[in-house]
Structure formats: C-alpha cells, structure tokens
Design a protein around this nucleic acid. Sequence first.
RNA 1: UGGGGCGUCGCCAAGUGGUAAGGCAGCGGACUUUGGAUCCGCCAUUCGUAGGUUCGAAUCCUGCCGCCCCAGCCA
Length: 558
Amino acid sequence: MSAETTAVKSDFIRTAVREDLASGRFTYVRTRFPPEPNGYLHIGHAKAMHIDFEIAREFGGTCNLRFDDTNPLKEEQEYVDAIIEDVRWLGYQWDGLFFASDYFEQLYEFAVKLIKKGKAYVCDLSPDELREYRGTLTTPGRESPWRNRSVEENLDLFARMRAGEFPEGSRTLRAKIDMASGNINLRDPVMYRIIRAPHHRTGTKWCIYPTYDFAHGQSDSIEGITHSLCSLEYEDHRPLYEWFLRELEIFAPRQIEFARLNLSYTVLSKRKLIQLVREGYVSGWDDPRMPTLRGLRRRGYTPSAIRDFCARIGVAKADSMVDIAMLEHSLRDELNRTAPRVMAVLRPLRVVLENYPEDKVEHLEAINNPEDPSAGTRLVPFSRVLYIEQDDFMENPPPKFYRLAPGREVRLRYGYFIRCVDVVKDAQGNIVELRCTYDPQTRGGNAPDGRKVKATIHWVSAAHAIPIEARLYDHLFTRPDPDNTEEGQTFLDYLNPRSLEVVTGFAEPCLADSPVGKHYQFERLGYFVVDPDSRPGHLVFNRSVTLKDAWARANQNG
RNA sequence: UGGGGCGUCGCCAAGUGGUAAGGCAGCGGACUUUGGAUCCGCCAUUCGUAGGUUCGAAUCCUGCCGCCCCAGCCA
C-alpha cells in the first residue's frame, strides 16, 4: 500500500485548515498552485503541488493553477505551456486556470484606491537611492523625499506612469508604511515599477507592472483563495500580504508557510538548474539526471511514484534535506508491483554449452511478473551459445560469492543448471568466453535429484538476443549537499563524473517492439524505461533505479 | 547589535501536560528459480541545552546554544 492512501495526515497546515473551518473563518477550502513561468517544474514543485492540491481535495475544496506572471523580463509562454503539461502529467486537476496578468486592470484600480487613501505614493528615487534609503538589517531606513506628495499629484503621476510618459526605472509606486520597521518588507515596499518590455500575455498594453507583493495576495483574494500555501521565505512578507488586504478592505485569505524540499545529491535552485543546462553539464531540461519533472519522467519516474514520495516526506516548517533514497524507494515500490520482468545482459560474457546440440533451440516459459499473476508468462529462446553478465562469474571467488566460478554449478533462470568447465582467455589474459555443460534433467530450473545451487543468474541466447543501449545513471553530484560548498568551490566541483555510463548489451527478443516510456525490470539489475532516443532496431533504455543489491552493499562495506 | 522562523533516532516526521507513532536507511533471521520482493525481529529511558512550574513536561515558563530566511524596481 502506498503512503498516499494510508498516511494519517495531521501536519500543521491541515490542523490550521481544520481550525479555520471549525471556527467559521472560512466555510470552504480553496488553494492555488502559483508557479512563475520562468523555468521548468521540478521535484520541489511537486511537493508544493501535492500540498496545494491534496489539501484542497481532502477538505472537499478546489485548487487553482495560477501563473505568477508579473515580470515580463523573465517570463515566457514556452514555460507556461511546459508547466501546464507537467502539472497534468503529475496527475493534478486544477479548478480554474488563471494568470496574475488577468488581474492587471483590477490591480491598477487597487493601487489607485491606496493612493486615494494616502497609503501609496509615487517615488522618484533611483534604484540606487532606493536601496540607500531603505537602511540595513540593523539600521532603520529614511523616508523618501517624495513620500508626502499630494493625493492629486500621486494620482496624476501614477496615471502618467501607466501612460508611458517616464523612462524605465525612473519612478515607482510605493506603499506608505513604515521606514523604521524591523521588517524590511514594510519599509515602503515597491508596488509598481516601470518596465518597457512586452509581456507574453498582455503584449505592450502595459509598461508598469505590479510586484509580487502587490499582486499575489490580491490575486488570491480575487479568486477567493482561503489558504495561500507558500514556502518559508515568504514568512516575512505575510505582514505586508495582510496589510494590503486590510487597507484594500477585500477578502483576506490566510497565508501559511512550509519548508521547501531539499533532496540529497541534487540541487533544486532554478539558477543552478539553468546553469547545468546552459553550460552543457546535462543534455537538457529533460536529462534523466535532472530533478525536473521532465527529467524524472524521462528517467522512468511515474507520476504516482512522485506523488507517493510527496506523501511520505510530509510537510513541516523545519529546514530539512530528504534522502534521495526515499524517492528511489517510492519508484521501486511501484515498479516492483507493475513492471514486467525481462532478461537483459548489460556487460556480456559469452558462454558456450558444450553438450547442448548446435542447432537446437528451445522456448522456455518465464513468468512476466511474480508480483502480478495476471501478467502471465512468455517464452524465451534458449540455445547453445548464451550471454551472461560478466559480474556473474569470478575465476577466484571470495567466500560469499554465490555465482558462477570454475567447476561450480548455478541455475540459469527459467533454464537449466550449468557448470563451468573451462575459462577461455585472450592474449592479454582477459576472460572472453566460458565453456560450460548443462544438465538436461534440470529444464525449467529444478533438479530431479533435489540438488541445490546457490545462485540463479540471468542470460540471453546469443543467436536470438537483440542489441540494446543502456544508459546507467547515478546521482548527479558526489556529495549529499552540493549547495554547501567549501572555500573557493562551487556546486559544479561536486558533479559526479560517473553520473552516466553508456553500455551496449543484449536483451531477450520480446523487447523488440517496446514503445517509448515502457517500463521493465531487467531481472537482477534494476528498472529500465525505453528512452525517446530509441529508433527502430536500436532500443535505448534508461536505468530508472537499481534493484536493492545485498551483495553490492556487503562488498561496499568491506 | 534589527526583524521573522526552526531545533524529536543516520534521514524525513507524528506528538499540543499523562509517561516518545510511522516511513526511509541500517542490522539480524525466515522464505526465495531475481543476493529482488515478502515475512518476522532489532533500531530515541529520551525530545538542542541549563534551570523552573507540576503528582507528572518533548509538550508550560526563563535563560543560553545552534541553524535558516530578509537589505531586487525577482518571485
């Protein structure tokens, strides 16, 4: 059972929502997922969406998808389209699809209202002056010399700002609050700035744009959002969020902040993700090593596995770093139940069965998924020359190595017991072939005399196998916390040089017509998914996640 | 030396005055034609720390320590 359906949800947000409903502060629940269309969604957004959409659903409410598109310098339609696609892919159904830019006219009216109340003014300070006047963390700011303009003058100036009479950056509209506040967000924050750039939705209609602070809460209010759930860095903005709503005398949603996701062995900051793409450290936003939704999808992560992960990690206010092993667990948990098993050899070692007839071919029955009887069985061709995994043979095996070795007998899965009788090497001493014998009595994998073998290994018939390319991925970074850099280093110094290894192997013929996106378990190796780079006759598989491997673990720990 | 937050097992995370859930990871063992899966068991006398209140404190109070966020006309 997945955490998604069984977890008892009693986090601080749900507790607050419950209280708000009980107290009558709200009579319904409405949330919103508010991405800025300036980049691709990643696993951190999945956490946010899980919180926004699931809480709404649990309380019989709805969740809107609203783009926070108040900065035309950074936002693009391309991202809007990609985000919509990714939200859908993750499996979330929004109620309304909105844009902050839908509210520009209304927001302008709100600003006018504040000016009329004497709560906002047009300021002529330059960006540098504004910073200087703001003061510092420990010293109060100074009031702008333009702070006490008359309402009439402010109204006139603001209208002319909108009309495009002033150059970019020359003036701002500011809220008149408190330049001495310990909370810097309250030191007369900018509400509107002049930006002479076309907006992806409103075109050139506007040359003044509201800031996040002046747009977000009012957008929430307009949509009747009850709970505006966001990340911790907005905690300092809550007093401002509430100030605007109060001064505007409009419906006031409740903002609640939670800790954003940090995942070990990866980075989630937009800036760093962009750098990885732009500077070519990965192949693109959908590189299977990227924590983007598109990267995860291509890697073989399913929407339900990602949602299960989000349910498992919970939500709280403490900064934390979730072990990526949890994400991997959610994937394995699902794929173990659903992925058909198949045999593929990634690092082939040729095996010749000396006593197996030259031209004989048998078709052996194999179970498609032991976790799901309804998946049925298939026939796998077997013949004299096979490939097995190089790792499954050792000439001088250590005590705990159960697999094939000179003179030793193992079982070929769904096949026969075979015994290694000779090792063939090339001039350099590399093992190039194994000569083995098989026991005809053990067809299917059981010995009539009841003798046991210590290991079962996978194989493919050389004459029937199809070649495949397999891309073996590992963590993108070598350190659990690549953001935490040492003196003189950057996160790039911790990139894992072995995060991708490409090998060419062989798989049983039933894989031949696998569609892109099809998941398999390559027995004893891991879960793999068909990559879009696949072409007829050239299948490419991405390793989504390995199987847990007690042997590898024991070896690692010495 | 300003303001806002946070500190419960290696990693997440419940708990909101009545005597420390659960998950991940790990470690044993059973079973096994995947060294997978599954099953069983182990894994915080203790909740950053020092005091205080109380019959009783992770939960209340006080002090201290540590970590995170804020000085964009970004979101």
